[in-house]
Design a binder for these strands. Structure first.
Lengths: 208, 208
DNA sequence: TTCTGATGTAGGATTATTCCTATATCAGAA
DNA sequence: TTCTGATATAGGAATAATCCTACATCAGAA
C-alpha cells in the first residue's frame, strides 16, 4: 500500500509514519514537505491515500487538494488540520477530500480513517458528521465567512495573512484590480473595514 | 525513564511517542494536552525529560516553562516549536529550558536531544547555536517589542489594530510620513515585514 | 424562457503607503 | 567635552491600494 504524507514539519511526518507503521499491510510511505512536492509526487505515482496538512508553507492545503483532484480525481485525500473542524471541513469535502481529521484525533482513529479512505471510502468523524448535519439545514447560523465564494475565501486568507494585493494578483494570475474588488466584496460580506479585522477574525476562528 | 509530552494535538503526541519508543531504554511516557495538565503532572511526578510545545491552548509554553522551573528547577525541559522563531528560543533557554527544537527537526535529532537533556545536559541544534552566537551581543533575550521606544510601541499597537497611517497621524498630530517612518523602524526592530505580522504578534502576546 | 443576482474579471482616477533621505534633539560614551 | 546613536520628526518620488464603474457568465427564480 502506497501512502503519501504531506506536512511541512518533519517531526509530524515522522510521527505520522510511525503511527501508520502499525497497520498490518506492507507500507510504502513517501513524504512531501510542501504542496509543490506533493503535487509532483502524485503526478508520477499512484497513492492509495494521501495525508494532506491544511496549512502548508507554499500554498493553502485546499488549493493543493483542488490541484490533486483535478489532475487525478481518483486519489483519496485525507485532510489533516491543526484547527477546529467546522471551518475548513465542509469546504474540503466539497472539493473532493475523502475525509477530514484534526490533529487532536487519536492515532487509532487516524488508522481507521486511512484504512477506509484507501479503499475508496469516505471517513468523517462522528463529531464532524453531527456538525455538518446541524449546519446543513440552517443557513442563518453560518459564520460570516461561510457567505464567501470559494475565490473570495481563498483571497480572504491571503489578505488576512498579510500578503499584498500585488502578490496575491501574481500568485493567482489576476489583476490587482480584481483582487481589490474581491477585497471590497469580502469586507462587505464580513461587515468589516480593515485588513487587520480579517486577520483577527481568521485567527479567532482558527482559519490561519 | 519517565518522559512527559505536552502538546495540544493528540496526533502530534502519538507521533512523538512512537518516535521516542525507538529508544533502547524502557520508557514510561505520560501526556498532557495543555499547560495546566503538564504542571499538575510535574507536581506529582519526577520526569527525566519534558517535551513542551511552545503554543498551547491555555497559556503560552514559555509561561508553562517558567512555572515548571520555579516549582521544580531540576526538571529538564525540551521546548518544541512549530515555527523557527529565534525570538522564542533564546528566551526559552534563558528561562531554563534544556533545549529548543523546531518541528522541522528530524526524529533522529529529537532522540539525540532527549537522550542528552534527560541526562541533565543541554541540547541546541547547530543552526540555533550559530544564530545565538551572532545575536548574543544585544538584547535578544527580550521580547521583540521591548526594544521599541515608547512612541514606536504606541504606534505599533495602533497599526496592529488596523488603524491607517492617516488616522494615526491625525490622532497624534504628526505627519503621515512620520508615522510611516515609525512603522519602518518598528518592522525592522521586530524583524517583520507586514502589518498583519504585527497584528498576529500583538494578539499572540496579549497586547491587543 | 427571460430575468436577476452572484461571481469572476478589470480600467481610470484618487488616495494611501512606502522608500530613501534629511534634520533637530538629547542622553550617554569616549 | 565632543561625538555618536537613538529618537522624533518630515519631504519628494515611486508604488500600492482603494473607490467607482463596467462587463461577461451562469445558475436559479419567476
Amino acid at each position: 500500500m502506497k501512502i503519501l504524507i504531506c506536512d511541512d514539519h518533519k517531526i509530524v511526518r515522522d510521527g505520522l509514519k510511525q503511527i501508520l507503521q502499525q497497520m498490518p499491510e506492507t507500507l510504502c510511505i513517501e513524504e512531501a514537505k510542501d504542496g509543490e512536492e506533493a503535487i509532483s509526487l502524485i503526478k508520477n505515482t499512484d497513492f492509495n491515500a494521501v495525508l494532506l496538512d491544511i496549512s502548508l508553507p507554499d500554498k493553502n492545503g485546499l488549493e493543493v487538494l483542488q490541484i490533486i483532484k483535478k489532475r487525478s480525481p481518483s486519489t483519496n485525500v485525507l485532510m489533516l488540520s491543526m484547527h477546529s473542524e467546522e471551518q475548513y471541513s465542509i469546504r474540503a469535502l466539497k472539493l473532493g477530500a475523502s475525509g477530514y481529521l484534526t490533529k487532536d484525533t487519536a492515532s487509532e482513529e487516524l488508522l481507521l480513517a486511512v484504512k477506509k479512505i484507501s479503499g475508496g471510502g469516505k471517513y468523517i468523524s462522528a463529531a464532524l458528521a453531527e456538525n455538518i448535519a446541524f449546519n446543513m439545514d440552517n443557513d442563518k447560523g453560518k459564520a460570516p465567512h461561510e457567505l464567501l465564494s470559494d475565490r473570495e475565501f481563498e483571497i480572504m486568507l491571503k489578505i488576512a495573512k498579510g500578503l499584498s494585493l500585488v502578490d496575491i494578483g501574481k500568485e493567482l494570475f489576476i489583476s490587482i484590480k480584481t483582487v481589490s474588488t474581491y477585497r471590497t466584496r469580502i469586507m462587505s460580506k464580513m461587515q468589516m473595514s480593515k485588513n487587520a479585522d480579517l486577520t483577527m477574525y481568521c485567527i479567532n476562528n482558527g482559519l490561519i
